[in-house]
Write a protein that binds this DNA or RNA. Structure first.
Length: 420
RNA sequence: GUGGGCGUAGCUCAGCUGGUAGAGCACUCGGUUGUGGUCCGAGAUGUCGCGGGUUCGAGCCCCGUCGCUCACCCCA
């Protein structure tokens, strides 16, 4: 029996795992600089949290959840997205009672039982933030900017930002009446009518040319915004422009999660396949209250680490290289090995990365391993070195060795590494 | 859930009109005393995805199945 990973999961192993780590850390960096604080959350929750929060009519809830019964007979679901779990935690622990807005971030894996394809996995990784308890349009702009800065920090350039506003409840209600009337006037097949029943906005996202042509003339939500909503959206745009962040308004944008209201946005990359969305999010006015919290609004996003990595690779801005130590230590003989272990232990304590040759290889082969490790320096520790206390520190790129006393090894490595 | 493409060594792949499996890279060891990269030599590695069928004989043909992959749908 040869085991393999479950269908459709993404997993990262060296050397690519290092590029993954880089992408994740770059996405996280601006978030931390803006005062968002870590929320480390469970990856499974009470199923009802998602059905209530995300919405039963969404594809995510109706057909993509990993749901099972635990030993106590409770219905449990692997989290398909991060927002409702984050809000549940905020509410449960009263984080929203100690000053608003609450600003939190999280990072980890999410699960959707879909048919896998390029950039779409059953277990995928996201970085997310939530800013809860302020209606200030500047907060919308900040959230969008943090996603933008994260992608930019990775080195991505071939992406665009699309924004729109879904307005407040009154705006959507007025629009929906006209939109449904318009859709009913169209000659559509049954499956499409069924989709429109669930959420008429979905039809704006239909890729079939004939449907898209019909929907191009449909009433647009942006034209139905209340003065308050329109004003809010105008300010968001103003702040984005002030930050020099380019965006396009996409009045046809549709998001698959029911809770979005007001400002919504998506980041789309040019070089990806069908799954080109590398991140997205928006404001959610009623969500806190719908899962048992106070009636306050919030805004957040989810950024796809897997897809951002794919995009970075497509743009050629990340390289997947193996770990390379500063020093590769080669002990010769049993007494030298104990000294080498001690030395490595001390060096690592001083934050110098060290690998020790294992397995008593011939010196020649140990040097080959040192070369392969990509180490900056190598050092042979044998009888003569132990006696004299002098070692030859060899710079691998030039082949030049310099004599150093063992006691001077740490300062020498530190200064010579800094010069690189 | 629906459709297309593909499954041969760790990786990339070759394998003719069916005759019981190969290359390159990588790996391990060696090329006379304790120093890598180039070069030379030697070595290890496959249930040809799995199961069935046709055939004297199947990596190759047929059926099924599983997996991977891309797209629809949906989204990170």
């Amino acid at each position: 029996m040869k085991f393999q990973s479950p269908k459709g999961v993404s997993e990262y192993f060296p050397p690519r795992s290092h590029a993954f780590e880089f992408v994740r850390d770059q996405l996280l960096a601006p978030i931390k600089n803006a005062g968002y604080q870590l929320l480390e959350l469970p990856i499974f929750e009470d199923t009802e949290l998602f059905t209530r929060g995300v919405g039963e009519s969404t594809d995510v809830v109706s057909k993509e959840m990993y749901t099972f019964e635990d030993r106590g007979g409770r219905s449990i679901t692997l989290r398909p997205e991060g927002t409702v779990g984050a809000l549940r935690s905020v509410i449960e622990h009263g984080l929203d009672r100690a000053g608003l807005p609450v600003k939190v971030f999280y990072c980890g894996s999410f699960f959707r039982a879909e048919r896998p394809q390029a950039g779409r996995y059953r277990q995928f990784y996201s970085v997310g933030i939530e800013a809860i308890g302020s209606d200030d349009p500047a907060l919308d702009a900040e959230v969008i900017a943090l996603a933008y800065e994260g992608f930019y920090g990775i080195g991505l350039r071939k992406f665009r930002l699309e924004v729109t506003s879904l307005g407040d409840a009154q705006s959507r209600k007025a629009h929906r009446v006209d939109l449904v009337a318009y859709i009913n006037s169209l000659n559509l097949d049954e499956a499409t009518k069924a989709r429109a029943q669930i959420n008429p906005l979905r039809l704006f996202d239909d890729k079939r040319p004939d449907v898209a042509a019909m929907m191009a003339k449909a009433p647009r939500l942006l034209d139905y915004l209340s003065t308050e909503s329109a004003d809010h959206f105008a300010k968001v745009q103003e702040y984005l422009s002030a930050m020099g962040i380019a965006f396009t308004i996409n009045p046809l944008m549709v998001r698959g999660l029911d809770y979005y209201t007001g400002t919504t946005f998506e980041f789309v990359h040019e070089d990806l396949g069908a799954q080109s969305g590398i991140g997205g999010g928006g404001r959610y006015d009623g969500l806190m209250e719908s899962i048992g919290g106070q009636n306050i609004s919030g805004i957040g996003f989810g950024l796809g680490i897997d897809r951002a990595l794919l995009a970075a690779e497509a743009e050629g801005v990340v390289s997947s290289t193996d770990f390379a130590p500063t020093l590769y230590l080669i002990p010769l003989g049993q007494s030298a090995k104990a000294v080498a272990m001690k030395l490595a232990h001390e060096l690592r304590d001083r934050d110098i990365s060290v690998e020790v040759a294992m397995g008593d290889k011939a010196l020649k082969n140990a040097m080959k391993s040192a070369d392969k490790s990509g180490a900056l320096f190598s050092l042979v520790l044998g009888e003569s070195e132990l006696e004299s206390g002098n070692v030859e520190l060899k710079e691998m790129s030039t082949g030049v060795a310099t004599s150093v006393t063992l006691s001077a090894l740490v300062p020498t490595l530190i200064t010579r590494t800094l010069k690189k």
